[in-house]
Simulated scan of single mutants.
Amino acid sequence: MDVLIALYPGQGSQKPKMALDLYDASKQVRDLFALASDVSGLDLYQLLAEGSEEELKQTVATQLAVTLASRSAHLRLTELGFSFAAHSGFSLGELSAFAGGGILDDETLFSLINKRAVLMDEEAKKIEEVQGKLGMAAIIGLDYATVEQALEEAQIPGLYASNDNSTTQVVIAGLQESIAQGKEVLQAKGARRVIPLKVSGPFHTPFMEGATEPFSAFLETLDFKNPHFLVISSVDGNVIKDSQQAKEHLAMQLAKPVRWTEAMKHLSSLAQEKHAQVAETGFGTVLSGLWKNSNAEIPCRNLGSEDAIWNYKKELES
């Protein structure tokens, strides 16, 4: 069986009914749904089975549902005999990577997700009440350095480069009126498209600094372990070496940009070194798309559904 490097998606990958095929296929996944629902106080099966896209867009629901889908895919792959050489997650997905890497168990994970989501949502609402509507948008056709420099030169208040997704895709975040101004500036620099994202706050920007201290204090109350497997952080693209560094990175990432391009470079080298396959381990195709744009030699498979996992297993056995 192939050894995998798991990539876990972040907010924006959510969709009604995701992971329900894994729920139907596996008692272990059903037990995970029950645990996550108990810890969070939300009926996550009902949310995914009956909830609307608008309900899933709310920060708390999004973070719990996306994490549950990712952990379900990892659990199902493990159940069917796949092993993992390394884990990495985009933004929110970093927490799934920590669970996959053995840094924290699922009960701690969903407790952590619940707290993180609530703090981020509260912080976004506080800012919105004072400063106005907030959001995020993907900039297609420019790299991170170009976007960052253009925004600095334009001096648009309340707008930041928040995600370094790939060499041709960057996310900006902040006040919606500032995003509108930024759109004009970046299109003048050569941006091909500007796409609003399905998230409810300016994550990974200084707007989230008010949530960092209480989240860091909460993290110190939790039991983290040193990694059992390699975990590559999306905060800086480096290996998480121990439990304390894991806590520091989780607190830091709320208000710091996601450096996914750096993570992908590291992961691509690891894949070649360990002769491992790369898999988007969760719902959707966002990360496999970014991986393809990075021109990595080893492709990234989508292994977030029961059909995809079984088709891959049959391919290997044939």
Rank of each mutant, 00 (worst) to 15 (best):
Ala19Ser: 15
Leu20Tyr: 14
Leu20Asn: 09
Asp21Glu: 11
Tyr23Arg: 05
Asp24Ala: 15
Ala25Trp: 10
Ser26Trp: 11
Val29Ile: 11
Val29Asp: 01
Arg30Ala: 08
Arg30Ile: 11
Arg30Thr: 09
Asp31Phe: 12
Asp31Ser: 15
Phe33Pro: 04
Phe33Glu: 05
Phe33Lys: 06
Ala34His: 14
Leu35Trp: 11
Ala36Gln: 07
Ala36Gly: 12
Ser37Glu: 08
Asp38Glu: 15
Asp38Arg: 14
Gly41Ile: 12
Gly41His: 12
Leu42Phe: 15
Leu44Arg: 05
Ala49Arg: 15
Ala49Ile: 10
Glu50Ile: 09
Glu50His: 15
Gly51Leu: 08
Ser52Met: 14
Ser52Gln: 11
Glu54Asp: 13
Glu55Val: 06
Glu55Pro: 02
Glu55Gln: 14
Gln58Trp: 13
Thr59Ile: 04
Val60Ile: 15
Val60Asp: 03
Val60Met: 10
Ala61Asp: 07
Thr62Tyr: 03
Gln63Tyr: 08
Leu64Thr: 00
Leu64Asp: 00
Leu64Cys: 01
Ala65Arg: 06
Thr67Met: 12
Ala69Thr: 09
Ala69Asn: 10
Arg71Asp: 12
Arg71Gln: 13
Arg71Asn: 15
Ser72His: 09
Ala73Trp: 02
His74Met: 12
His74Asn: 12
Leu75Glu: 04
Thr78Glu: 12
Thr78Pro: 10
Thr78Asp: 13
Leu80Lys: 14
Leu80Cys: 10
Leu80Thr: 09
Phe84Gly: 00
Ala86Pro: 06
Ser88Arg: 02
Gly89Glu: 00
Phe90Pro: 01
Ser91Lys: 03
Ser91Asp: 04
Leu92Ile: 08
Gly93Cys: 09
Glu94Trp: 04
Leu95Gln: 06
Ser96Met: 03
Ser96Thr: 10
Ser96Ala: 10
Ala97Phe: 06
Phe98Gly: 05
Phe98Gln: 09
Ala99Leu: 07
Gly100Lys: 00
Gly102Val: 06
Gly102Ser: 05
Gly102Phe: 02
Ile103Cys: 11
Ile103Arg: 04
Leu104Glu: 02
Glu107Trp: 02
Glu107Tyr: 02
Glu107Ser: 05
Thr108Trp: 07
Leu109Arg: 01
Phe110Ala: 01
Leu112Thr: 00
Ile113Ala: 02
Lys115Asp: 04
Lys115Gln: 08
Arg116Glu: 00
Arg116Lys: 00
Arg116Ser: 00
Leu119Met: 04
Met120Ser: 02
Met120Ile: 03
Glu122Arg: 06
Glu122Trp: 03
Ala124Asp: 01
Lys125Arg: 08
Lys125Gln: 11
Lys126Thr: 04
Ile127Met: 12
Ile127Pro: 01
Ile127Phe: 06
Glu129Ser: 11
Glu129Thr: 07
Val130Thr: 09
Val130Asn: 10
Lys133Met: 11
Met136Asn: 01
Ala137Met: 05
Ala137Gln: 04
Ala138Ile: 05
Gly141Asn: 11
Gly141Pro: 09
Leu142Ile: 06
Asp143Arg: 07
Asp143Thr: 02
Thr146His: 05
Val147Thr: 06
Glu148Ala: 08
Glu148Ser: 11
